[in-house]
C-alpha cells in the first residue's frame, strides 16, 4: 500500500505547504520538506513494485500516467528546492501533485493488456508527462509572478510578499521550465504519433488527445518564440503560461473522455 501512503504524505505536504504560506514563521518549511521527501520515496517504491508486478514500465493506463506525472512533479520541486531554497514553490506545486495522485487513484487500476507493438508506449508517456511537468512548474512560477507583481504594485507587503521570491527569479524559473518542457513534449508527441501509426496505421486521427496535444504544443511554441524574439517575458509570460497550462488540463480531460483509462 505504498501508493496510499504516498497519497497521504502528499496530502500532508500540501496542507503543510498551504499553512506555511499563510504563517510568518519559516519553521514549517523543514517539516514540509521531510514529509514531501518521505512521500516521494514511498511513491517511488509504489512505482517500482508496480513495475515489477506489471512486467513493464507502469505506464500503460492513464491513471498510471497521472501517478508518474505527480511523482515527477514532486521530484522537480525537491530538486529546485535543494538548489534555490524556495519552499514557497511547494505551496503551488504540491497541490497539483496531490490532485494528480488522487485522480490517478480514482481512475481504473487494472493493468490493461496491450498489443505487443504497444509495449513501447511508455516512452511516449514518459516524455509527454515530463514535458507537462515543465509546464506545470511554469504555471506555478507564472501564478507566483502575478501574485508578487500585484502585491508590489498595490504595495501590500503581507506574509505572501515576504515569502515569494524576487520577480526576476520567478520569470527565470518560468522560462527554464518551458525551455526544458517544450522539447520533451515535442518528442512525446512524435513518439505518440509513431505509436499510433503502429497501432492503427495512421499518425494522426484528430482524436481529442491528439488535437489537444497539438494545440498545446503550438501554444507553447508561440510562447517560447515570443519570449526569445519580442520580449514576451515577465507579466505577459506569466499570463501565457497559465493559459497554456489550462490547455494541458483540457487535453488531459480529452484523453480521459476518449480512452476511459487506456492510452494510444
Amino acid at each position: 500500500m505504498f501508493f496510499v501512503a504516498a497519497m497521504v504524505m502528499y496530502f500532508l505536504g500540501t496542507a503543510l505547504s498551504l499553512a506555511y504560506l499563510l504563517r510568518r514563521s519559516e519553521a514549517l518549511s523543514n517539516i514540509l520538506l521531510i514529509v514531501t521527501g518521505l512521500g516521494f520515496l514511498v511513491h517511488t517504491g509504489a512505482l517500482l513494485t508496480r513495475m515489477i508486478t506489471g512486467g513493464s514500465a507502469p505506464l500503460s493506463s492513464f491513471g498510471e500516467a497521472m501517478s508518474f506525472f505527480s511523482w515527477a512533479l514532486v521530484l522537480v520541486f525537491l530538486l529546485v528546492e535543494f538548489r534555490n531554497r524556495v519552499p514557497v514553490l511547494g505551496s503551488f506545486i504540491l497541490p497539483i501533485a496531490f490532485i494528480s495522485i488522487v485522480s490517478a487513484a480514482a481512475l481504473p487500476q487494472e493493468v490493461p493488456t496491450l498489443e505487443p507493438v504497444l509495449k513501447t508506449v511508455w516512452v511516449h508517456v514518459i516524455l509527454s508527462m515530463l514535458g507537462t511537468v515543465g509546464f506545470a512548474v511554469a504555471f506555478a512560477a507564472g501564478l507566483m509572478y502575478l501574485i508578487q507583481d500585484g502585491l508590489l504594485k498595490s504595495k501590500r507587503f503581507n506574509v505572501l510578499y515576504a515569502k515569494l521570491p524576487p520577480l526576476d527569479y520567478l520569470d527565470r524559473l518560468n522560462q527554464q521550465s518551458i525551455v526544458l518542457g517544450f522539447p520533451l513534449l515535442t518528442l512525446g508527441i512524435i513518439t505518440g504519433a509513431l505509436s499510433a501509426e503502429f497501432a492503427r496505421g495512421s499518425y494522426l486521427n484528430w482524436n481529442p488527445e491528439q488535437t489537444g496535444a497539438l494545440i498545446t504544443w503550438l501554444f507553447y511554441f508561440i510562447v517560447l518564440v515570443g519570449r526569445l524574439t519580442v520580449g514576451w517575458r515577465a507579466k505577459r509570460a506569466a499570463y501565457l503560461t497559465i493559459i497554456g497550462f489550462a490547455c494541458v488540463v483540457l487535453t488531459f480531460i480529452g484523453v480521459l473522455m476518449k480512452s476511459h483509462g487506456t492510452i494510444a
Binding site: 508590489l152 510578499y161 515569494l164 524576487p166 520577480l167 526576476d168 527569479y169 527565470r172
Partner: peptide
C-alpha cells in the same frame, strides 16, 4: 530591500 524583491 524592495529592489531585492524584484531582482534576485
Amino acid at each position: 530591500e524592495l529592489a531585492r524583491k524584484i531582482f534576485s
